[in-house]
Amino acid sequence: MAVRMPHWFRQIWNTKGLSRWIFLVGLFITLVFVVFAIFAPWIAPYHFNQTAVDGVKFPKLGSASSDHWLGTNDQFYDIASRMIWGARTGLEVVVMSVAFAGVIGVPLGLLSGFVGGWIDRVLVFLMDAIYAFPSLLLAIVFAFLLKNTLGGGVVAAALSLTAIYIPQYFRVVRNTTVSAREATYVEAARAIGAPPLTIMRKYLFGNVVQSVPVLGTLNAADALGTLAALGFLGLGIQPNEASEWGYDLSRALDDAQAGNWLPAFWPGLMIVLLITGLTFVGEGLNEGINPALRRRRLQKVVFPARTAGEEVSS
């Protein structure tokens, strides 16, 4: 991987104007949120679950001040702290759900595509059935089911999102495997006596996972939206477990109707920014990795003037 990183990065760098800027802007936004997430305890003035400092309660719906940069909301929380801690929650859930989905979906797709036969047919049917459900509905069902066993925490939220994305990895990997299975190098691997597991591990895996990072970033953006939707419906993470923008947004709606729209504006902005950032990164990766989309910058050919000496004839 260490050898490959600069290679694909150079490919993205060499793509034409707009798509390169999209990638860089996306990368910048995402990195800012990553910094928020990692250093939340140090950046945020208060804990996400804090409603008082030194025994003094925060004001309800307080306006912006030097104590509360963005004011407080109707649950006495400091909005700025909630926003910064929210980045941690969002990225944790997104990374976990995408990682779970990949860890389950990729091997299943590899197996299904390589082995074929009835295993393939059953898995494809199952995955298509899951995929056919509206993703939010599916997430709600899983959130309900997991609430009793795992509670309303980050892990439960991540797992309820995982189920939505498994079929996507499965499909992409299965389809690339089906075509890669016929490649001569796989036949060559059989010819040197490689058992099926080795063929999948050493010959197919490396060649079929190349589209997974793109899918991962695009799914991450989608997962964040779904997480916010779950929180908005009150089915996601509970406010005392972690700070979650979707929940804050739903709490702030009544106040917005009453004329105080700032408590709703900030979580909304956060959701939109991070989704945009992740989507941009995904699209940038896609153009860098997918040769069909890639249009490289080509220097115009300039013919040097012919030197007179070349034209000597006998």
């Binding site: 490289r296 080509l298 220097q299 050919v301 300039v302 013919f303």
Partner: peptide
């Protein structure tokens, strides 16, 4: 007649 085409490394 010359026909050149561009690449990253030059024509």
């Amino acid at each position: 007649l010359r026909v050149w085409y561009a690449t990253d490394r030059g024509p």
